[in-house]
Design a protein around this nucleic acid. Structure first.
Lengths: 209, 209
DNA sequence: TGACGGTATCAACACCGTGTCGACTTAATC
DNA sequence: GATTAAGTCGACACGGTGTTGATACCGTCA
């Protein structure tokens, strides 16, 4: 059992593991994921490159762990939101979108890295797809309910609509946080996205409530 | 001057250059841009790797040339479209979006490669940004006119709205052509996107005309 | 016709990042 | 103090990139 309150001669495995994670998120804040080498991460965590491989199989595995934490955080944040689409549809959508924006704003480095890694790594792709799909499923359910009570207007299938809107959010936020051209400012992002969601779902700015 | 109608002992420089371009687009159709090496391209074009560097400074330069051709094609296609937003706003938007979908559908390999290369290569980023910006500028102008004649409804700035919608198209089409999960089918893409554009701009499915 | 010069070609090399192997050290356990 | 599991890293092999320098081809002009 490792000594408690007294420094052991070597940091424990868990300390090393989390040093790698936090160093990576830290380095990620200033450089792109593709530009940082495992050497950089290892150096930042105070270990040699081969030792890095004792903890993670690759750079992508580290990102996977970071991404997992972010996704879990989004889930919690969105779940703990007070929403009542019947009473206040516009506000409910806006608060949900706002929650996403907040979390991705806080972890923009991880989000940006995911965007690049997803394109070449199947596991990252899968993890991200699963989340996107679950958000799309949730939106689809709400839209279907809104259609049933006559608030939303018919048109494209609820699922196509919700997929397109979720993908829009992903791309717009990635542009905003990445400072791309063209992009919309962080201040305008939530209201612009919410307006598009609401008009697309209800065909109006003032849905029935 | 090179012989005409008679084969010279070596293919000319121009032939090599275009062999590199077409080979690259061809190889790109089955593998991702990141996975193909300069060796692959050179072999496909019947030259050695160093000789490749005589024609292009890097793999990315090849993509840049391919992308340039695709962007030019989109421009031509969209310009030659008959549009009259006052007479038929919904149809005009739908035809414009349809033109994009067609071109990117034909050159999906180049579009996919651009998506990945943009993230690490500044020149690709710039070229793509410029096009995106010019399409967004065009949409902004039309939305502004539609607002002036009282057909579009006020809300987010015309430019924020148009940037968000253009980015949505980019992401949704990339998912569709890449067969991502979640994504919408190629058959449903144009109608879903058009509906979102029209409802977001006019606040209704049947804009004034 | 022959030598000049731009165009084109490629073998060989230097470099960098990844991932692996095997030998070594450290610390808990019996 | 012997054994075992966990942890560490020097040294290597590999694969892809980009460069260099020597050489071949070919149109042209004296």
């Amino acid at each position: 059992m490792p000594a408690r309150g007294r420094r052991t001669t070597r940091p424990s495995g868990d300390e090393r593991q989390s040093a790698i994670l936090s160093t990576t998120e830290h380095i990620l804040a200033e450089g792109s994921f593709d530009d940082i080498s495992i050497e950089d991460i290892a150096a930042g965590a105070g270990i040699s490159r081969p030792t890095f491989y004792f903890y993670f199989a690759s750079k992508d595995e580290v990102l996977l762990a970071l991404l997992d934490r972010v996704i879990t955080e989004v889930e919690h944040r969105v779940q703990s939101l007070s929403r009542d689409f019947e009473a206040d549809p516009a506000g409910s959508w806006q608060r949900s979108i706002g929650a996403f924006v907040e979390v991705f704003s806080e972890h923009r480095a991880v989000a940006a890295a995911t965007t690049t890694a997803r394109l070449r790594n199947a596991e990252v792709q899968t993890l991200w797809s699963r989340s996107l799909q679950s958000w799309a499923d949730y939106s689809t359910d709400v839209i279907t309910q809104e259609l049933a009570r006559g608030a939303a207007i018919p048109g494209p299938s609820a699922s196509d609509l919700s997929i397109a809107l979720n993908l829009m959010n992903e791309r717009v936020l990635s542009a905003t946080f990445g400072g791309d051209t063209p992009s919309i400012t962080e201040a305008d992002a939530v209201s612009t996205l919410s307006t598009i969601w609401i008009r697309s779902i209800y065909g109006s700015d003032l849905p029935l409530h």
